[in-house]
């Protein structure tokens, strides 16, 4: 493996490049969602951070916070995961907006609602990866999205486990967005293995 690269030794310039990648990826993704929902969404500057497994699984409102998570396994030139996560109540608001239902209605998720959340995740992840491909020239394939509604800790345990084969912590590129007239707070994150970060760096010449 070419990956005796230690993620921990990345310098500021390298981290800046990852932040920029996250920014472009998530920017495009959030724009697609904004068009779909016909509402303004604002995005925060992405955070590139190293986290312990425990901090990672608690990073979306704590490990017991109930979220909807949509995840794609990515392969090709780089390997890892892209994940869209949103608090359960926010997911309800999102689906209600999409279906033009009264925002105060706290209905249960139907199968139809769940597939709507999955489709939103699919669109976000798809445009995130498409812009990543466009900037880096890398070929990235992604699996059909999978979804779970559960405790954040349980959902995030899966990418953490896969990552744990190589590392004892996680390098995560995370972007958050918020609705302006719709109270939602969504997260898009990418977790790749160290070889992949090395490939991205080579491609971008940093």
């Amino acid at each position: 493996m070419a990956s005796d690269v230690q993620l921990e030794t990345m310098d500021n310039q390298e981290l800046d490049v990852l932040t920029e990648l996250g920014s472009i990826g998530a920017g495009n993704a959030v724009t697609s969602l904004s068009v779909l929902l016909n509402t303004k969404l604002s995005m925060q500057i992405p955070k590139v951070s190293f986290m312990t497994f425990d901090d990672f699984i608690g990073s979306i409102g704590g490990p017991e916070n109930i979220i909807a998570g949509v995840m794609c396994d990515i392969a090709g030139d780089i390997e890892g995961f892209v994940l869209f996560a949103i608090d359960l109540m926010d997911a309800h608001r999102l689906v209600n907006r999409l279906n033009n239902i009264d925002l105060s209605a706290e209905n249960m998720f139907t199968d139809f609602d769940l597939s709507a959340v999955k489709e939103i995740g699919n669109i976000l992840i798809g445009s995130y990866l498409a812009s990543l491909e466009a900037i880096t020239g890398l070929k990235i394939r992604s699996t059909v999205p999978v979804m779970a509604v559960d405790m954040a800790g349980a959902i995030l345990s899966f990418p953490a486990i896969v990552n744990s084969r190589e590392h004892d912590d996680i390098l995560r590129i995370e972007s958050q967005f918020e609705g302006e007239d719709l109270s939602i707070n969504g997260h898009i994150m990418m977790i790749a293995n160290s070889e992949s970060y090395q490939i991205i760096r080579q491609k971008l010449g940093v």
Binding site: M151, A152, A154, S157
Partner: peptide, 9 residues
């Protein structure tokens, strides 16, 4: 003693 949010672990 407890552990929280056990998924595939």
């Amino acid at each position: 003693i407890t552990t929280i949010g056990l998924g595939s672990c």
